[in-house]
């Protein structure tokens, strides 16, 4: 356990000392900070647009870290041959791979944490400085004549207050309407990225970084479309039944699509449809979501270990 922790910590240290991580993070934060523009550009449901935009940022930039940092992490050890000295130490190869995996997860989760706090801060700041909300409140209190010319100050004090509220939101305290459930959604994203990172480790245990990046990205896309793949396989069957003729080509096509459905992870299981998410309404998350994510990641990691165990490090 200590060995895995040592490797994980070193992997984390490697990531936080690389420039790419900071580039990703700065870009993500800048994008989130500019979500006010997205809100102003949207016609309606301003809060929802900002919330979805922020959650999308967290998801995509988390994925970017998993791919850009994750894949290089294992490959560099093989390419630069530092694996030679690691393998000669009293550790098993599976411990090395698990250490790498947990180190990457730690990196991704720290980045997600920073992004989430920042995102909640942005939401709180926008909530505090929302002229629409203030005008609405004044109207409700019968102060209609005062609503013209309302102009709120955007200042540092509001930003600091928003940051504080953001931290509190993260632990479930003092939630404003639009931030409700964000922690749960982010945790689901974290679980989804745990599965994607396991794939990144799998591919980088036998392939080059470029190929591994492509494979991981394709897995992510296919995983998100997993339910659509199933629907497509059913459509093929329905089509054949409708025509009254089952061709060999049709059957093969159906089973190939079913196979694609079986081998790709159902990443849709970690998504929450925010359209149905009325403020404050309880989230409907199936009980098996977490065991599914954990078991899937464990299965992919087991496969990586099987490949890695018999590899010759030339």
């Amino acid at each position: 356990m200590k060995t895995i922790a040592a490797i994980a910590w070193n992997t984390f240290r490697e990531a936080v000392r690389s420039r790419i991580l900071y580039l990703i993070l700065i870009f993500a934060l800048l994008l989130m900070a500019s979500s006010g523009i997205v809100r102003d550009l949207s016609i309606a449901a301003h809060d929802r647009v900002v919330r979805d935009f922020g959650l999308l940022c967290i998801n995509l930039f988390g994925l970017a870290v998993a791919i850009l940092v994750g894949i290089g992490s294992v490959y560099n050890e093989l390419d630069k041959k530092s694996i030679y000295t690691i393998v000669s130490k009293p550790i098993a190869r599976w411990q090395f791979l698990l250490g790498k995996y947990f180190g990457l997860l730690l990196t991704i989760y720290v980045i997600i944490f920073i992004m989430t706090v920042f995102f909640l801060m942005v939401l709180n700041y926008q909530d505090m400085t929302s002229e629409d909300a203030l005008i609405q409140m004044m109207k409700e209190r019968g102060l209609t004549e005062l609503t013209t010319g309302v102009h709120l100050r955007h200042d540092a004090a509001s930003a600091v207050k928003a940051a504080g509220k953001g931290f509190l939101n993260l632990v479930g305290v003092d939630l404003i309407g639009s931030t409700r459930h964000i922690t749960t959604i982010v945790l689901l994203t974290a679980l989804e990225l745990a599965v994607v990172t396991a794939f990144a480790i799998l591919y980088s245990s036998f392939s080059t970084p470029t190929l591994s990046a492509i494979f991981t990205l394709l897995t992510f896309v296919a995983g998100r479309l997993n339910e659509s793949i199933w629907e497509y396989s059913q459509q093929i069957l329905t089509g054949q039944a409708g025509a009254g003729v089952a061709t060999v080509g049709g059957i093969v096509k159906h089973w190939l699509v079913v196979l694609a459905y079986m081998v790709t992870p159902n990443l849709g299981a970690f998504r929450v449809n925010t359209l149905d998410l009325a403020d404050g309404a309880p989230l409907s998350i199936p009980w098996f979501t977490v065991p599914y994510g954990v078991l899937y990641a464990a299965m992919v990691l087991s496969l990586s270990i099987m490949i890695f165990r018999s590899r010759n490090f030339k």
């Binding site: 070193n10 530092s82 000669s88």
Partner: peptide, 14 residues
Amino acid sequence: IGFLPENPYFYDYL
């Protein structure tokens, strides 16, 4: 046991 490989590379960020 201890092992030193040929032309070793170690983690340059450490």
